[in-house]
Design a protein around this nucleic acid. Sequence first.
DNA 1: ATATATTTTCAGTAATTATTGAAAATTCAG
DNA 2: CTGAATTTTCAATAATTACTGAAAATATAT
Lengths: 168, 168
Amino acid sequence: MKLAEAKLQFIQSWGVLGGQWGINRTMAQVHALLLVAGNPLSTDDIMAELSISRGNANMNIRELMDWKLVDKSIVSGDRKEYFTAEKDIWKVATCIMYQRKKRELDPMLKVLGQLTDIEGDKRSAEMKAFAETIANIQKFAGQAEKTLDTVIKAEENWFWSSFMKMFK
Amino acid sequence: MKLAEAKLQFIQSWGVLGGQWGINRTMAQVHALLLVAGNPLSTDDIMAELSISRGNANMNIRELMDWKLVDKSIVSGDRKEYFTAEKDIWKVATCIMYQRKKRELDPMLKVLGQLTDIEGDKRSAEMKAFAETIANIQKFAGQAEKTLDTVIKAEENWFWSSFMKMFK
DNA sequence: ATATATTTTCAGTAATTATTGAAAATTCAG
DNA sequence: CTGAATTTTCAATAATTACTGAAAATATAT
């Protein structure tokens, strides 16, 4: 297989996967393109490779930068902006998990926190089902959060750091 | 706060969260509704609570059953079908992770497996960037899969089982 | 068997989300 | 400063995804 063909297939699959996980397909494709690029790419490169408009390219690059998955990269002697992606997939994964937690899970948990004090007979089946489900989710989320923090901080911690090296 | 109001807010938030993670918002709402219901609900109950059509309700209930998140439940003396949701959030989470892996990650990894043999100079920057990224993702996915299997099988294993009880 | 209740399907439509492209804003070299 | 290069914005439009409602299929009681 030719490299160009392989890249295309990778970009395509990464795009599909992104779509399934609630990420704009094009954003995932831009990310994929930068992941497999040997050198920084400009907006024009990205437009050309993915056949997308300037506006679309720009928006998705900005968003990838918000997610800390893509960085600007200066190419001397050129006024254009160039971009690179973080290529350590472990870092990519922890970054995405951390951000999705912050952006999406935390707001949900905040709402749950407001649903704990309900009027009425605490012993009715309806009441119990509700209270138990909410408490359950909160407990689960708390543990998941601890685990995520441990994983994210693993590299700053001598014990986990060495343990994680086996894992990575 | 009244129970009905709290339920509504929960259903709403769960729906938003689902949407952000690539799950049909209505499907997430049906799931939420069943999660906090004190008793099994019929299609008509779900239609009424969420103000959705019969077709929509039916489709989403079927899909939730495909995901093993919802089960039929027989109410004696009634011809209608009734539905309940798995309420142990730990089980819900492992179920979703397992199924998303199977449905979405595995196909991606299958594609990656086909992209390892590329024509051309193995030492070019482009080539190296590509090969390394692919290998990286595969390695990461392999470890993630092992971890997921461990977690899923935890309850069938005496050691993990007792360990997990602290966690749940 | 027939009537009736219930579930499923799916073509048409509505709602949402993504994309374009060109104008406006910004940046930067001379 | 000036003007060309570049980036950003956003209204219009396209593409995708979700929903409805009624007809068809299925199941159940008598």
